[in-house]
Design a protein around this nucleic acid. Structure first.
Lengths: 206, 206
DNA sequence: CCTACCGATCGGTAGG
DNA sequence: CCTACCGATCGGTAGG
């Protein structure tokens, strides 16, 4: 009894690890090649399995996509939230914005491939996965929206600034970095600094 | 002789039209579904042909991708250049920037699907097509780079602004619009205005 | 988790 | 530009 329970627990633990390995590999491949160009055989090979064995852990390729997408936003959301909560209550909104930007960039370039994969393959997702995933995206979006509103109410963003334009401009600026950012040439920190300065101070003469 | 020459000319004209129709359809499908999810049968059906007939006009699916990618950047490049050249010599750099932004947005949302398709499927292109296409992209990139440098030299962009960060931030802000822009809700013009104001004046208190 | 396999679909071709 | 087709590959399954 004792030993079979132990064996079962080990098997379960091993299975959880394999699941995560498959997701990690899928995220990396999705990020590089996109969803359709990544085959189950690619994913299986990346974790040393045969194609059919992946179905021991997942019901379908779409289920893998679904989980990769969700992990991508959730981990970024958590990183951003934590970095802001780590600030003192007295922090300015500009400073909150800067650390949020920093955390989002870090999620893109330092915390695995999930967020990059998310941005890369989101548009390739079948409708029912899109509909499901859009909810968590909207929550993340709302978190940022709330930040801009508070900053404007506090007078740190001018009242004539269109917040929805600003929000979308910033998301674009951040996410486009996956197209050109090369680790080593520029730190995530300096990137967040420069973007914050450009956006808050503008580039024109003062 | 005369009539067969005429027939040949007609046939050629018709063939040019068909070619363009195929490219138009491909651009629209690439934009919506990406490259791999778009089949030659989709493209053929969209122009009322059978799959095999597409090969009368193109050697391969990759050749179609190649032309769609190139047309996307070239048409945007031309639109941006013309809009700037239409300005008086005395125009400020801020004004030049605004019309350039406007022309890029117009290319994305009003001048067919080529630029949108380009942004959508560029990352899915096989290496040899990527290598070929990157050249025209770099030319377009250089055109913008030159604009920022001139603006800074003229004192319309502060000397402490990192131009390469600014350039990449702006490309991201512009191109990300394909993810959310819905024609009718907001004009391309007002979008270019708002972005220009945010970037030149900043959002912080002055 | 593997072996062996299936039906569907794909890009592309031959011959007209 | 069509008909008819091919080889390759894909996601997924049965049975162990």
């Amino acid at each position: 009894m004792k030993s079979s329970a132990k064996t079962a627990a080990n098997a379960e633990r091993k299975s959880v690890v394999s699941r995560r390995e498959i997701l990690d590999a899928a995220a990396g491949l999705f990020r590089m090649k996109g969803y359709y160009a990544t085959t189950l055989r690619d994913i299986a090979a990346a974790v040393g399995m045969k194609a059919g064995s992946v179905y021991y852990h997942f019901d379908s390729k779409e289920q893998i996509l679904e989980e990769v997408l969700d992990i991508g936003i959730r981990s970024a959301f958590e990183a951003v939230r934590k970095s802001i909560e780590a600030l003192p209550e007295t922090a300015t909104w500009r400073e909150r914005f800067r650390v949020a930007l920093n955390a989002h960039f870090a999620s893109l370039f330092q915390l695995g491939d999930y967020l990059s994969a998310n941005l890369r393959v989101f548009g390739q997702a079948p409708p029912h996965i899109y509909e499901q995933h859009i909810r968590i995206r909207r929550e993340y979006d709302d978190y940022w929206r709330n930040m801009y509103e508070k900053a404007q109410a506090a007078g740190e963003i001018r009242s004539d600034v269109n917040l929805s334009a600003l929000r979308l401009l910033v998301f674009g600026a951040m996410n486009w970095a996956i197209e050109w950012y090369k680790p080593g040439k520029k730190t995530v920190d300096s990137l967040a600094d420069e973007y914050t300065r450009i956006l808050f101070d503008g580039v024109g003469p003062r």
